[in-house]
Design a protein around this nucleic acid. Structure first.
Length: 791
DNA sequence: TAGTTTTAAGTTTTT
DNA sequence: CTTAAAACTA
């Protein structure tokens, strides 16, 4: 309704399929723009089209466009879709806030004294560092403090900021925060919060830098703006000059990241902060049928303090959502499996049409084991377990230390792993020596001139001579491992050709997979080093003894540690050799942990937390665990409760055609079964917006009985056929070819048996392709022999 | 001091 | 019930 008043006539053809509001949003120019986009209103389409339009019809240089999102998934999707409309969109900068911050700091961090080869500390690393600063404090206390520091950075608060009291008023916190910052600066690494906060500081410190960026980015688009925090707002402000075109997109009803500093006021007050803002509302929902939207709205309507908007379904009537009351979580899992199984075998849907939503990651376990048992293919989204594994973190610590020898956290983690006689006392001495080197006024060696400040490798060498023989030898092993990898990394040096490490320029990784040499007790585990970086990773992991260390554990517990290390090395092979490539790899690992585990399974049910569903859609959705204490969590009230309610809204509006909600009468928590109350949100649903099945708790009236023919099948008893016959597991000996079922790995067959030190070791090949070795007569609860006809 | 056993604690949600 | 931290022993 403004300057772009007659679109239809002059609109390019690719815009004609947009509705009038969407067109207005795409064509708008001249003033800041706030797009209030309800769920399923074609928001991503508008942004991608707008990018394409700016390039194609407004003659914008793609490189002058910056679009930021909150998740890597969203960034990728946006890039893909924009490129389809306009190939040159590939040159625009489409990144997450954090990835943009890292990109920025690598190039411009020097104005703050930051070395370009910094490593990004994750939450665990910051806790480790903080622990060294907080000496006698308990682990919980350290974690809490780490959280407060992260929060402070979200709010763009420094240790000396008066407003820091909002976060924590105790003065001891200020001191700890200050010491943490100081230590971080010495180490030369950054945490997540720094990726946002430091760019703002850099832009403020250097007006020339700010001007350069304002000249470069003429257009800035922000997606999911309702989840931005104060620091991100400051970054946006700092990047914007008077000429910059700003467009933010969001939905206040979908703000679900308050807990990590998201500030809804950013979107509520955007028009005040950016004078002259125009607002476009997208209120036509193309995703869900009307009954689904009715249900979602009836709950979120209970929130106060929203901008208020009315979503209309463009799809019209549909199936009434179903609310199932179930006795316990086992029934809930069975209910979902049954529902999906019947629908798929009845050919009314595919597995990939379905998504199971839950509040906490821990809830996925039950679904995983039952789906494995029933052979329902599934995909768990966003479980970042891989990078949290001990062996993977060890390998990454080695690589981090290689890049930044001042990295105390990484050093402490791996210098004495496996045990080499370098104990805590020795490590403390080295750390002290390193920091002494920083301030040493003794001109004796001129230590602080050539970049050796805080260098733990250099400090180690300095103390070597004064150590015991054992510690000295151990430390030398470690140092030479790192040194060897450094040579391999930088010089493409000839590197030992011993172990298939291969030259870094080997064009393809040989697929000559042989059996793992089992019998021999030789030390070197069979890791293969493929191309480029991965050769370096393998070399380092082997030389430093990490591979050997974890191989020992594999034999005992039947774990996958060596395989995981191999997987990490494989991931590294995607990056070029050399320090540049290594930095890229590490940054990717820290910033994008979503493993693309689409291993061939194309038709699979999605298991996902409610938070992770943002931006996604599925034909059929099951929201589980609608009980007080689970969803919402019991201590939630006020603003926090409203946020949980929005989370409900987000979950429900993911559904296109069918929505199911489950609630259990009792649930196991910490191993104990406890009675539960139905979620508050269930009470808030308009009674006729939902069809209820199962036994209703007090306070709920069934609107309709379930169809008689189905109700029995819907809530089956726990004893499946497999369970019944499989119990007699451990009688008799194992033979090659025996069928097994394992709670974690699923179905498989014994492929090899051999005598180990502690009894027979059997090797099992699972359907997923994994080969796992198990020791003797073991954990029969997780692992059992089954009969052929069950299989 | 390293590796084991015992005890306590804990699950939000994520870049 | 599972994991991490303290406590304990060889």
């Amino acid at each position: 309704m403004s300057k772009n008043s007659k679109p239809a006539a002059q609109v390019p053809p690719y815009l004609e399929t947009l509705n009038p509001e969407q067109q207005e949003a795409v064509l708008h120019s001249g003033s800041p723009l706030l797009i209030l986009a309800g769920a399923g209103s074609g928001k991503t389409r508008v942004i991608t089209t707008k990018i394409a339009y700016l390039i194609r019809d407004r003659g914008m240089d793609p490189r002058s466009i910056l679009a930021v999102t909150f998740t890597n998934k969203a960034a990728r999707e946006m890039a893909d879709r924009a490129r389809i409309i306009e190939p040159r969109a590939g040159d625009a900068m489409l990144r997450t806030f954090h990835s943009f911050g890292a990109w920025f700091l690598r190039r411009n961090g020097s104005v703050l004294g930051l070395n370009p080869s910094f490593v990004i500390y994750d939450d665990d690393d910051t806790v480790s560092l903080l622990a060294t600063l907080m000496g006698d404090s308990s682990r919980a206390e350290v974690k809490h403090t780490a959280h407060l520091i992260a929060r402070a950075k979200d709010y763009f608060l420094n240790p000396d900021d008066p407003e820091l009291d909002i976060i924590e008023h105790r003065s001891s916190f200020r001191k700890t925060y200050a010491r943490y910052e100081e230590r971080m600066l010495q180490i030369g690494n950054v945490d997540f919060g720094d990726l946002i906060k430091k760019p703002v500081e850099a832009l403020r410190v250097s007006p020339e830098l700010a001007q350069r960026f304002r000249d470069r980015f003429r257009v800035i688009l922000v997606d999911e703006y309702q989840d931005s925090n104060v620091a991100q707002f400051e970054l946006l402000k700092a990047l914007c000059g008077p000429e910059t075109y700003v467009c933010v997109v969001g939905d206040d009803d979908q703000s679900i990241y308050r807990f990590r500093g998201a500030e809804v006021r950013n979107i509520l007050e955007f028009p005040d902060r950016f004078p002259g803002t125009e607002i476009v509302r997208l209120e036509r929902n193309y995703r869900s049928t009307a009954p689904i939207l009715d249900l979602a709205s009836s709950v979120v309507d209970h929130n106060e303090g929203r901008l208020g908007k009315k979503l209309r379904s463009e799809r019209g009537p549909g199936k009434t959502p179903t609310l199932a009351f179930l006795p316990d979580q086992d029934s809930e899992v069975a209910f979902c499996a049954e529902l999906i199984g019947q629908s798929v075998s009845g050919k009314t849907s595919r597995y990939s049409d379905w998504a199971v939503l839950y509040r906490t990651n821990a809830q996925s376990l039950g679904f995983e084991t039952e789906f494995l048992r029933r052979r329902i293919p599934y995909r768990v989204v966003g479980s970042l377990k891989f990078y949290e594994r001990e062996e993977v973190k060890d390998a990454l610590a080695l690589l981090s230390f290689l890049v930044n020898p001042r990295d105390e956290v990484a050093f402490r983690r791996v210098v004495n792993k496996p045990a080499r006689g370098v104990g805590a006392a020795t490590v403390d001495r080295i750390v002290l020596e390193a920091s002494a080197g920083m301030f040493a006024g003794d001109g004796g060696l001129g230590l602080s001139q050539d970049g050796l400040e805080g260098d733990l490798a250099a400090a180690s060498r300095r103390v070597l001579s004064s150590l015991s023989a054992k510690a000295k030898a151990g430390l030398e092993t470690f140092l030479s491992a790192v040194e060897g990898a450094r040579t391999l990394l930088s010089g493409d040096g000839p590197g030992g050709e011993d172990d298939g490490g291969g030259s870094a320029s080997d064009p393809e990784s040989p697929k000559t997979k042989s059996k793992k040499g089992g019998k021999k007790k030789e030390a070197a585990p069979d890791l293969r080093g493929g191309v480029g970086l991965s050769a370096c990773v393998v070399r380092l992991v082997q030389d430093a003894g990490i591979a050997e260390y974890h191989l020992a554990h594999d034999e005992i517990a039947g774990n996958q540690r060596i395989a995981n290390l191999q997987e990490l090395a494989n991931a590294a092979s995607l990056y070029p050799a050399g320090e540049e490539g290594l930095l890229e790899f590490l940054e990717h690992v820290e910033l994008d942990r979503s493993m693309e585990q689409d291993e061939g399974v194309d038709d699979a049910v999605t298991l996902i937390t409610l938070h992770n569903t943002k931006g996604l859609e599925f034909p059929r959705v099951i929201m589980t665990g609608l009980e007080q204490g689970v969803f919402p969590r019991d201590d939630k009230k006020g603003d926090d409760l409203e946020e949980e309610r929005r989370l409900f809204y987000v979950g429900a509006t993911r559904a296109m055609d069918e929505l199911y909600i489950t609630s259990c009468a009792q649930r196991r928590l910490f191993g104990r079964t406890q009675p539960t109350q139905p979620s508050l949100f269930l009470h808030e649903i308009t009674p006729d917006a939902v069809r209820i099945i199962g036994s209703c708790p007090y306070g709920f009236t069934p609107t309709e009985q379930p169809p008689a023919d189905r109700s029995s099948g819907m809530v089956p008893n726990r004893s499946g056929p497999i369970n019944g016959q499989a119990k007699r597991s451990s009688d008799g000996r194992w033979q090659v070819g025996d069928r097994v079922f394992h709670d974690d790995y699923g179905y498989g067959a014994v492929t090899n048996i051999r005598e180990g030190d502690d009894g027979p070791v059997i090797q099992v090949g699972f359907e997923t392709g994994r080969e796992v070795r198990f020791l003797s007569e073991f954990q029969s609860s997780r692992f059992m022999k089954i009969q052929a006809d069950d299989f």
